[in-house]
């Protein structure tokens, strides 16, 4: 999995600028992801790529279009030192994996692999490892279900309705 590296305070206006919010379609949104900050992103991103960022990733607007655009672009996981709370919720609710970890030495273009079970990020390019704490049980359950919609549907069928 190849890394796209970003700094601190990447706001949702950078992830998906407001002028493209006339659709909720992930594939369409992905065409404009990081349009102003890194115009090459939408052309060059490959399925499975990972974003590694600094603090407060996804600050700003509540637009779920931001994690949707990243999912649509094929991003498999976002690793950040910290996340803005609405982005964090949105990612989990739609089933985009997010990891809170300070993976400071990972650089643009590095190859990484992530062991979610054991909570380890391996930077294969540099031969370094970072551990991360698993999500709280409830949030992990949401993610494992595939997001909030699937979780609610499961809960409904479990209760026999």
């Amino acid at each position: 999995m190849r890394v796209w590296k970003f700094g601190d305070d990447i706001d949702t206006d950078q992830i998906i600028p407001a002028e493209y919010l006339t659709t909720g379609d992930a594939a369409e949104l992905a065409r404009h992801a990081f349009a102003k900050l890194r115009p090459e992103f939408s052309r060059e991103v490959k399925k499975g790529d990972v974003i590694v960022a600094g603090a407060n990733f996804g600050c700003g607007s509540s637009r779920e279009h931001a994690p949707r655009a990243l999912m649509g672009a094929g991003i498999s996981c976002v690793i950040a030192k910290s996340f803005a709370r609405i982005f964090f919720r949105n990612a989990i609710n739609i089933g985009l994996r997010v990891i809170e970890a300070d993976a400071r030495n990972i650089e643009e273009g590095d190859e990484v692999e992530i062991d979610f079970e054991r909570g380890v990020i391996r930077d294969l390019t540099r031969g370094e490892e970072y551990s991360f704490k698993p999500l709280p049980e409830f949030m992990q359950k949401l993610l494992d279900s595939g997001g909030l919609i699937a979780y609610i549907k499961n809960a409904k069928s479990d209760s026999g309705r």
Binding site: S62, R63, P67, N90, L148
Partner: peptide, 8 residues
């Protein structure tokens, strides 16, 4: 909140 959770 996001749209998905608002819908839920």
């Amino acid at each position: 909140v996001g749209s998905t959770e608002a819908g839920a």
